[in-house]
Each structure stands twice: as C-alpha cells, then as structure tokens.
C-alpha cells in the first residue's frame, strides 16, 4: 500500500488556511492512485508529529505544500516527522532543485519518501500560467499581457526569492506573455511599483503563496493600489496608473496544484498511473488547448 501525506502550515487563527490543502487532497484522492491520502499541519491537527501513526500504508510519500525550500522543509517537517537520519545534504539542492529522499521515521515502521516542496517543482510554472488563465477566464491569455510572479522576498529566506525568479524565468522562456517579471513584497523590485515594471496595458499578478491570507488578501492588494482598504474589495481587472491589473490571489488555491503534488510523489517513485494527465485534464479552464511548459 502507498499513502500520500500533504504537509502544510495551517493556522490557529484563519479557518481557511487549510482549505486549499483539503481540496488538493480531495483531487488526488479522486485520482484513485493512492491507498490513503492524508493531510497534516504545523498549526492544526493531525500534527506532523502524529500523522504517520494514523496511516496503514508502509510506503508513505510526504509532499510539503510549501512555496520554497527553507526553515520548514529543511528543519521543522523532518524533525517533527521524526526522520532521524535527515540531513539537508540529502536533497543536494541549489535552493530550488530538491526532489526527494527516502528515510525511516522514528515512531512507525514505514518507509518515508520525503519530497521537495510543491512551490519549486517545474510543474508549478504551469500552475502559475493556469492561474493567469483562470483569473482572466481566457485559456489562451498571453499576447498583449504582462505577468508578475510575486513572492515574499529574502527577508527570512533567500530560497524564497529564488523560487519566484526560477518560475518567472521559466515562464518568460515560454514566450507566451509579452513580459514576465519577479516582484517582491519586501525587496526590490517591489510590488508597490508594479506598473513601473511593465509596458503592457494588461498585467496579471500571481502571488506564489500556498493559501490566501493576510499577505495575499490585505497587503498585496493595498500595496499595488487595487484598493485603499482591502475590506471594501477590488475590481478584477482594476485600473492602476493606466494599466489593468488582473490580481489572481494565491497560486496554491489553483486546482492544478494537485498535479504538482502528484508529480512530486511520482518523482519520488510513487506509482501514479495516468493520474497526472487525468488531473491536468480535469482542472483545465474550459476551451484550453492544454499546451504547457511541462509537455
């Protein structure tokens, strides 16, 4: 038997923080390729500490629903799962290239395939593009549009910026959008000046965050000038300095994120059959041709 465990941050305060995690788990579950699909959280239950003991399967694929490699993926998750022989060198990563490593857990007789985070997988570039399609309701969005991929910045973790730049570069190479830029909340180039960085009239803004919350629903919309007060909401698209801003909200809420989760597990050796193709098909915007960088 094989199990998939999606590990995410969760929240003591925000009831919606777990929602994308649950939804992606349901999408993966519906694909029917894992005997068990479970979720676990740093701030909710089951905790990282106790999730493995609730699982029957001997082979467990653990996929962090986190954006970048860093404190959580390198320290907190392996420690709390009791992956005693974990060493960050096992991932042999340049900051965005971690794939997986296989370890034993201290409290259960199971083989744990510990995967790199969802946010740094190549397929995440496709999810960002899909997010742009969803927010514009246009499966062919690209020509005449700029795309801003937005992240936290390096304040706490330099890999966080690396992941943003990595995807911006990959999507830029696709040649689909007129312009693609990486922007940040707490360093240059800053999201506050978003319209300064684009020639295009239309700009799609996709924050590389797992769930909507304070940053994606309050900070970023106000910083970009979509609204003076997040509580009053904003238009999509919103007019800012003569540009139309299509603000997408957290990329992690996009249904296609479930595909990246499965790809992480597949890269680590999980038998996923044709689930990847199936999820790409089922989560697609109506009318999309399905072309993507991963194909």
């Amino acid at each position: 038997m094989q199990a998939l465990v999606i590990v995410a941050h969760g929240s003591h305060l925000n009831p919606d923080a777990s929602t994308p995690t649950y939804e992606h788990a349901d999408t993966v579950r519906a694909a029917g390729v894992f005997d068990e699909v479970r979720t676990a959280f740093w701030k909710e239950e089951p905790s990282f500490r106790e999730v493995l003991r609730t699982i029957e399967s001997e082979e467990v694929y653990v996929v962090p629903l986190f954006i970048s490699e860093g404190y959580f993926t390198e320290q907190v998750i392996p420690r709390e799962l009791r992956l005693d022989d974990w060493d960050v060198a096992e991932w042999d990563s340049d900051g965005t290239s971690a794939t997986h490593t296989t370890l034993a857990a201290g409290d259960v007789e199971k083989t744990v395939h510990y995967c790199g985070p969802v946010g740094t997988h190549d397929a995440m570039s496709d999810v960002i593009v899909r997010r742009a399609e969803t927010v514009t309701d246009d499966p062919d969005v690209g020509p005449g549009f700029g795309l801003a991929v937005v992240g936290h910045g390096t304040e706490r973790n330099e890999n966080s910026a690396k992941a943003i730049e990595y995807h911006a570069e990959r999507i830029g190479e696709m040649g689909r959008f007129d312009e693609v830029k990486a922007l940040f909340m707490d360093e240059d180039p800053e999201i506050d000046d978003v319209t300064d960085f684009f020639e295009s009239d239309d700009i799609v803004v996709v924050p590389l965050f797992v769930a909507d919350g304070y940053h994606t629903q309050e900070d970023i919309p106000e910083d970009m000038g979509l609204t003076d007060d997040y509580r009053t909401g904003w238009e999509t698209p919103a007019e800012v300095d003569g540009h139309r801003i299509w603000y997408a909200g957290a990329v992690g809420t996009e249904a296609l994120t479930a595909d990246v989760i499965i790809e992480r597990a597949a890269d680590a050796g999980a038998d996923v059959g044709n689930a990847i193709e199936e999820i790409r098909r089922r989560t697609r915007v109506a009318g999309a041709d399905g072309a993507s960088v991963g194909d």
């Binding site: 239950e45 089951p46 905790s47 106790e50 999730v51 003991r53 609730t54």
Partner: peptide
Amino acid sequence: VDIVYPATVANWHL
C-alpha cells in the same frame, strides 16, 4: 472519528 479527533484512536491504542 479520526477526522473529528485526529490521531486519538492511534494514541489510545498505543
């Protein structure tokens, strides 16, 4: 039960 009270059955059994 495991969704309402996560891991309680596993820990009770241990």
